[in-house]
């Protein structure tokens, strides 16, 4: 049984079908890439899975149990954590407080929660900034804080929404290592990213969505030479695009 099983998920915003009859599975222990052009519906998929937005149709099964209709906080309790594409740190709290708050989910004592938060901050290499206010961090640090906060809830599945958006190449390499390291520690990851190179290097499997529909679900090596994917990314010009050449 897959850890997370999405079946026929559909979401309309007014007349716009942001996600349309989408099904996919996430297996335990893998890093699943989720890619697609701007506005493809990736963030909406995350919001649907985590209960921030109710779907019009479809199911989301976590270990076989439907979690559609649950509130975001109770989905977090069940072990699904997410990050936000546009970072939403608790700006006027310190980095340590930000992460401790998340650790409260599994530890009710303040001391234990703080100890857990420190461990997580070590892992994402933010421990030096523990006492800084979140609003004083650089974007790269805020993105890592976002991951740290999600991680501190000790999730089974971690949904990462563009953790590398806006980072420079060195920071991107750094972040890739972090993501792989998190996966090795036993957390299953679904990863939305526009930096395809990072996805290709780290993911076990990649799903491509376009206009809310799934157009491919295969290992990364095959994605880059798939004509449908190339067309989705490059539009009509794909016809003139030499087949077989990687898109990134």
């Amino acid at each position: 049984m897959a850890l997370l099983d999405v079946e026929g998920l559909t979401k309309c915003f007014g007349g716009l079908k942001a996600v349309s009859n989408l099904s996919f599975q996430v297996n335990e222990g893998e890093i699943l890439g989720l890619i697609g052009p701007n506005g493809a519906g990736k963030t909406t998929v995350f919001s649907l899975i985590t209960g921030f937005v109710p779907p019009n149709e479809g199911k989301v099964l976590l270990e076989g149990k439907d979690i559609v209709g649950l509130k975001p906080y109770s989905i977090a309790h069940k072990g699904v954590a997410r990050t936000f594409q546009i970072v939403k740190p608790f700006r006027k709290l310190t980095v340590l407080e930000n992460v401790s708050l998340a650790a409260f989910l599994r530890h009710s004592a303040r001391k234990e929660a703080e100890a857990e938060a420190r461990r997580v901050l070590e892992r994402v290499e933010l421990i030096d900034k523990a006492a800084s206010y979140a609003s004083d961090l650089t974007l790269s640090e805020q993105k890592r804080l976002e991951i740290a906060r999600a991680l501190a809830t000790n999730p089974k599945v971690l949904l990462l929404d563009e953790p590398m958006g806006g980072l420079n190449p060195t920071e991107i390499d750094h972040a890739s290592i972090l993501v792989r390291d998190i996966c090795k520690s036993g957390v299953t990851i679904v990863w939305v990213e526009h930096v395809l190179k990072a996805i290709m290097n780290s993911c076990h499997r990649v799903i491509v969505i376009h206009h809310g529909e799934k157009i491919a679900d295969m290992p990364p090596e095959q994605i880059v030479i798939n004509p449908v994917v190339i067309e989705a990314y490059l539009g009509k010009k794909a016809n003139s695009y030499k087949k077989g050449e990687p898109i990134c």
């Binding site: 985590t50 109770s74 997410r82 740190p89 700006r91 709290l93």
Partner: peptide, 27 residues
């Protein structure tokens, strides 16, 4: 101010979505 409750309230003040995402029942 010293317990989990107070920390939750501060989280609520800062960002409701983030608070929900880390398991706080904001309602």
């Amino acid at each position: 101010s010293r317990t989990r409750v107070g920390a939750y309230l501060l989280a609520l003040r800062e960002d409701i979505d983030s608070a929900e995402s880390i398991g706080i029942n904001t309602v």
